[in-house]
Design a protein around this nucleic acid. Structure first.
Lengths: 232, 232
DNA sequence: ACCTGAACACCGTTCAAGT
DNA sequence: ACCTGAACACCGTTCAAGT
């Protein structure tokens, strides 16, 4: 895992092209896809580019700056629906497509939710989303409802990321923990949850399908929750 | 910050009581209140207890084990409403009181949401919560609605934690970033959000009040979203 | 059983010196 | 301007040796 010695003589004298901020961020994005946003080090990036660690600081900045640059790149990949789409469909589409992009880069969803409009590539989406809600009649609530809806969806993606990137056995442990209570008549609430946990397989493909189903449930409940404000 | 040399001669020969797992976890809980769950190191715990780092591993296990022990302790402090309370009130109370406890221990909310029923002290709450939902007529949806409601509330607490523990200026940066768009007529969505950001003060007390208001909005919208399932 | 004391393999950041 | 090469102050974990 170390590969400690980068290269012998200077890049320039070896006829190699200079490192750029862009190349560093490319490498970081790739490492994020493989290991998540908290799964790589500055030193791994520098090893990958065959330079000394200090070079990353020189071109991009500290770790935080690299992370924000990766986040901006990934957010830019999320397709934004057209403003003519009805509000519920607009948000469903953004949430579902956002999820498939974000899930490929574990840890980015969390950053997005935490730093929000500090990510430049998120601005067009924010603009259109609020416009759509204003058009749907949410009035003064448009901004906070936008925040509520996107939080609901992408906070859940962040949890999905954490579950299988950072604590890979949390998923199975939880299932087994619950299944133990299936026959516990003294605790009917746990028993109900346990019964469903028993039915749940440990096949990763089925688990992924269940994650998607729960994501859709969250989406629909949150959209209903927002809609209740319109009827009031 | 280092204080690298713990103590001269052995604890036993100095007449000191032996370190226990409990004392280690006490120290970790205290450090979590001060610096958050990701804000302390095993070495800081050992310095605080005046022993060598290896002692923590000997009594509790690796960092992950210490973190789970802290999480369990903190969750146990959240008061659980009586099952006789109507479902909406039951969940409002749990969410609001859970928030005030969790906010005192930054980072614990995230763990709770990610590992869920793997935290032993969460089990009685899960049991009662599902019982309450079954009683309210949610039937087969009780388990997933429980998960949906608690996720909504505590994922948001996790984001609040991250915002001011880990990225202390994200809050102010976001406000300023949005305020810039208040007069941007070419982007009406951002302008609407910007106008509200301008109105927002940078006084920490007012910001805290606004965080609470948004938390309540999230709570009410999610409860409405769940309720929509009952009417259907 | 409990703890010391050290070693190991990592981190991110900084910076003088070379080219 | 760009990069080398090293140093600094940290990490978590492991483990032989002492008591």
């Amino acid at each position: 895992m170390s590969e400690s010695a980068p290269r012998r003589r200077s890049r320039a004298s070896a006829g190699l092209p200079p490192i750029t901020a862009d190349k560093i961020i490319d490498a970081a994005v790739e490492l994020t896809a493989q290991h998540g946003l908290d799964g790589w080090s500055i030193r791994q990036i520098s090893t990958k580019l065959d330079v000394w660690p200090g070079v990353v600081a020189h071109h991009v900045g500290d770790r935080e700056a690299v992370v924000m640059a990766v986040t901006d790149r990934v957010i830019a990949r999320i397709p934004v629906p057209d403003v003519s789409v009805p509000w519920r469909d607009w948000f469903s589409a953004l949430m579902l497509e956002g999820r498939t992009v974000l899930r490929q880069y574990p840890g980015v969803a969390r950053r997005l939710v935490v730093v929000g409009p500090n990510v430049p590539s998120a601005l067009p989406t924010i603009d259109k989303g609020i416009k759509v809600l204003l058009g749907a009649g949410f009035g003064e609530h448009a901004t906070e409802i936008y925040r509520y809806l996107l939080n609901s969806a992408f906070m859940l993606v962040a949890v999905e990321d954490d579950r299988d990137s950072y604590f890979p056995n949390a998923r199975a442990d939880m299932g087994r923990a619950m299944a133990r209570f299936a026959a516990d008549t003294s605790r009917p609430g746990l028993a109900a949850a346990g019964a469903q946990a028993v039915a749940r397989s440990e096949d990763p493909e089925r688990l992924a399908a269940e994650d998607l189903a729960f994501f859709r449930l969250t989406m629909e409940r949150s959209l209903d929750g927002a809609q209740a404000l319109l009827s009031a």
